[in-house]
């Protein structure tokens, strides 16, 4: 099973850093869990509709109305790094 996934590329996609010992353990865990999940192959799923929602609801809208939230200061106040009214992040380089 473990050859099925590349733990490094998954970690990269999910922006997770894996220490060496974590990597071995997680690779092993994931292999086991995926091996277990494999049993779903026993089910005949032909013609079965996927269930994405259990709420039998459709067409839930809101009207196009503006309601100012006025939470900017409250959010910025607790932000891990603000500068003026902006959030600040390390320089974003792969952008024009």
């Amino acid at each position: 099973m473990s050859e099925k996934f590349n733990i490094d590329s998954l970690a990269d996609l999910a922006r997770i850093r894996l220490k060496k010992e974590e990597k071995a353990k997680l690779t092993n865990d994931l292999s086991k869990i995926l091996g277990y999940v494999e049993a779903l192959g026993q089910l005949n799923l032909e013609g079965i509709e996927p269930t994405t929602h259990v709420a039998k609801l459709e067409n839930v809208f809101r009207a196009d109305e503006v309601k100012p939230a006025l939470v900017r200061e409250e959010v910025l106040k607790h932000s891990p790094h603000r500068e003026g009214n902006f959030f600040k992040v390390p320089k974003v380089i792969d952008q024009a």
Binding site: L40, L43, L45, I48, E49, P50, T51, T52, V54
Partner: peptide, 13 residues
């Protein structure tokens, strides 16, 4: 995996 899971989910309902 995911799609198979969604389909199998239908059985529970």
């Amino acid at each position: 995996y995911y799609l198979r899971g969604l389909k199998a989910r239908t059985f529970f309902r």
